[in-house]
Design a protein around this nucleic acid. Structure first.
Lengths: 147, 147
DNA sequence: CCTTGACCTGAACTATGGTTGAGGTTGTAT
DNA sequence: ATACAACCTCAACCATAGTTCAGGTCAAGG
């Protein structure tokens, strides 16, 4: 065990306990997602609460939130342990985006299933086919359909 | 309108009608996702069915399938218009991955909602909190929790 | 004939989320 | 005291999914 106590963690301790690589801890610190302090010998030290922060970062990433957005949300929080109120604030914001992602994926799945059921690729009313046909019908103008 | 007919499309026609940029058509061709032929003057020409292929590529991307995987699946198809059977084969494969993504996002959302409801950040039984605590409880061994 | 827009290639650049390696320092155990 | 693991920085590199740009060619209309 390293000399770092239960309360103060080295970068290696953080990596082991959080499950991310040491290089990722460096990376998150460079990106302003986490913060710590340095020893007189310039080595990183973190409070134990950094583990919760990293867990939250990974959760947000699973929800599809980019790191830059996560950082903006996390900046509103204190450095110490995360309170329930802070967690509620974060998760509220992320839940909305998570729901959007889920909704659009479910819609896509449903449309794919409809398509399979109806064998509609040769028909004109396929919901998956329509985006393209709508364009073809409009002629050669600017279509702006990149989303 | 360009000289290219209803059946033969230039790269610009494809871009306009499919809604992707010309550079993206080039890119897809380089990556082996689409195929066409060249005029005597080395300009790209595509059959009209390329539009359906590009529509399918975008659908697969929305489902979270990486281009390399899309290419592998598309390689099994003929160059001409896509048949219902081919579409069924593709969508079967992608639906499975889409369902996995949806399932994991829904689980995440549900866990977040449970967390919000119970204010469990300070308790030991929070399903979102557990991954980290499990590690902390195990001590400093190798944890392999990167997934 | 000649201008102009669309096209060509190849290389470089963007952004995201990291990993890897070189070269040097710190810290702990023996 | 010294060896060895863990740490440091900075730069370069990886993959994914493209976009942009320079320098040159092609083709259609006036």
């Amino acid at each position: 065990m390293s000399i770092t106590s239960e309360q103060v963690l080295s970068v290696g301790d953080v990596a082991k306990r959080s499950g991310v690589a040491v290089s990722t801890v460096h990376f998150y610190e460079r990106k302003g997602l986490i913060e710590g302090w340095r020893t007189s010998g310039n080595q990183r030290r973190y409070p134990r609460s950094i583990l919760r922060r990293i867990a939250i970062i990974r959760i947000a990433q699973q929800a599809g939130i980019p790191l830059a957005t996560i950082r903006e949300h996390m900046k509103k929080m204190t450095n110490g342990p995360i309170t329930a109120a802070q967690w509620n604030e974060l998760s509220e914001a992320w839940r909305a985006q998570l729901n959007e992602r889920i909704t659009s994926l479910v819609q896509l799945r449903d449309r794919m299933e409809t398509c399979i059921g109806c064998g509609c690729l040769s028909l004109g009313d396929c919901p998956l086919r329509n985006p393209e046909d709508a364009l073809a019908a409009e002629g050669p103008g600017a279509h702006l359909l990149n989303s």
